[in-house]
Design a protein around this nucleic acid. Structure first.
Lengths: 340, 340
DNA sequence: AATATATGCTTAATCGTTTAAACAAAAAAA
DNA sequence: TTTTTTTGTTTAAACGATTAAGCATATATT
């Protein structure tokens, strides 16, 4: 009793012509030689039968699915969730579908996702690579599957990527804190070997070093991603317990900032009176935080759109060169970095 | 120079057998009569060539894509974003892929999405229906395409659905406020004719009526979804300007609560001292709100999982009866509904 | 009038997989 | 030994679309 979808065959039978003729008409080829009258009739029948081309069949024939595989590191992070939405929208504009998954920062999951998406014949990938996924990226490259990395990349693997200048962004943050009058500035980051994190840390360290000429030392705490809730507490404790307790904390991501601020609230410390705060990236949670946060705002829109554009260009034209795009992030000044 | 994906043909050539033999081996059919030795060899070659079955071809043959189309009303709403994630996870567990889109509460967009997903041959739909999409649902039913509605449903269309008892939830909220000592309770809702919203409003009105025996009147403000930012201000103003200003506001959704609280902050009103607040659903934004919010928590996990289960069961067994699941929501008591 | 070109439509192959049916050779039953 | 059954593999059709090539007619060019 299952009504099948109408196919070219159904239309062909109805009109009394061959499938090919119907196909020529409905795919609107300029070089087709079907008569006007026949074309009109076929189009009418197609409309009344409510014909929708079977994209699966089209894909099999063409070898293209018009589908992009998106792998983000952590979809529960609003930063990635937002970027996913932007990518989705831009892809839709360019007539692509997005299938996505979250690797949860695990190389193993990432590999599984790549296999999964590959078997569904995605035309290309946009990937936020996780730690240890280097070889997966190399594999994809060897298979000539178009891909664009975002947010992070591997400096020793030549790929398309769209990222921000994390060193520069970090540096901006520290300069702002210094200008505001802070000297003892701590940073809480992930102990993640990926380039973006190292750059953020390098921006912090070098800026402090350059500015204070080694007179003020840097205070970096690195945290294990999988035990962040505990380690952020001990981390903050340690920063505050130094002989010269730090006066400001720079959180390397929004997730760290959220956890950190919750603990700071628990400690009944006020921002910025007792401690200044700057965060990398935003979060809905900050909307109602009593003290508007100074933070780095990445050009999400641009990152997402550029990534899709670079990818679809490469899909259309595989021999086009690799594109490496590095954007600048803005520092949004709130009250959390003021010196009172 | 483009390396194609390896196909059964490649393996067959390599081993020197027919494609069919390879297919029998790799699809692990118990009734196949291929010799052990041959099977072993084929599996080995498949592994060394890193064969991945082409799901597009499989789908074309089988008529099944193992893909679910998910249409939510508004992906920027964390409620729907969370449910989308849960659905995605559960679908993955059951070996399904999810392709989704957001209708942005527009019937037109919803129709477009349905067509789009249909042409990609999804096996079934999970839909948060938007206003005016009744006929789209009826259409899908007529085409015998399995579907499950969530969050809302049309009482006059018989479908699978997984929802909560909105009347009951709303009633719980009002009872809590009354027990806390509030009498003049306002509600801000959307002027949306969909069942879930009407039920929330009915729960509010009837509970007040029953409890106060018409001695206290209800104070409902309905807001246009597309102009909510303005209308919520005038709405709150009007509730506060009555001869007997209301003492508590019940927001019918989290988006309304966020907008409302921002305005209430602007007015320098304190919660719950100056005004009590209850919200339907949560939001990350409330994490840092100074006053923990009393709110309705829906069993997102259960809704999402049940929806996927009902759908996949129907896909596997189209003649199975329709399932209508109505769950209960919890009232989470914060401090925003206390009477000080 | 004879040939060339244009027009309108059909045939058939193809994409990668599945699977019923056919077939040949080996093993079992007669 | 002959017949039947089992075993191991191949052939070929199918899913729904695309598209080069083919084949009649009809029209245009000599």
């Amino acid at each position: 009793m299952k009504k099948k979808q109408v196919s070219l065959k159904d239309i062909a039978n109805e009109v009394g012509v061959s499938i090919a003729t119907v196909s020529y008409v409905l795919s609107d080829r300029k070089d087709s030689r079907v008569s006007q009258a026949m074309a009109k009739k076929i189009k009418e029948v197609a409309k009344t039968l409510n014909y929708q081309p079977n994209k699966i069949a089209q894909s099999l024939k063409s070898g293209k699915t018009n589908t992009i595989g998106l792998i983000v590191a952590d979809i529960s992070n609003p930063f990635f969730a937002n970027i996913a939405r932007i990518i989705e929208d831009e892809a839709t504009n360019l007539n692509y579908t997005v299938i996505f998954g979250s690797s949860d920062e695990k190389a193993e999951k990432s590999l599984h996702l790549i296999d999964f998406l590959s078997s569904r014949q995605v035309d290309g990938f946009i990937i936020v690579p996780s730690e240890g996924s280097d070889n997966q990226i190399i594999q994809l490259k060897q298979q000539n599957i178009p891909l664009v990395l975002i947010d992070r990349y591997f400096p020793n693997i030549s790929t398309n990527y769209v990222v921000i200048d994390n060193f520069e962004a970090s540096s901006k943050v520290i300069k702002e804190l210094i200008v505001s009058g802070y000297e003892r500035i701590g940073m809480i980051a992930y102990s993640n070997p990926l380039f973006h994190m190292r750059e953020r840390i390098r921006g912090y360290k070098e800026t402090i070093q350059n500015h204070f000429d080694n007179r003020v030392s840097s205070n970096l705490v690195e945290i294990d991603f999988n035990d962040s809730e505990n380690q952020i507490r001990t981390g903050i404790d340690s920063l505050l317990a130094r002989e010269n307790p730090i006066e400001a904390i720079f959180f390397a991501t929004n997730t760290l900032a959220i956890l950190g601020l919750k603990y700071i609230d628990e400690l009944s410390l006020r921002v910025p009176n007792d401690i200044a705060i700057v965060s990398f990236d935003e979060g809905e949670a900050f909307d109602f935080y009593y003290c508007p946060l100074t933070h780095i705002r990445q050009p999400l829109d641009e990152i997402g759109k550029k990534a899709v554009q670079v990818l679809t260009q490469q899909i259309a034209q595989p021999d086009i060169g690799e594109k490496q795009i590095c954007l600048e992030a803005d520092l949004i000044k709130g009250k959390s970095s003021l010196k009172l």
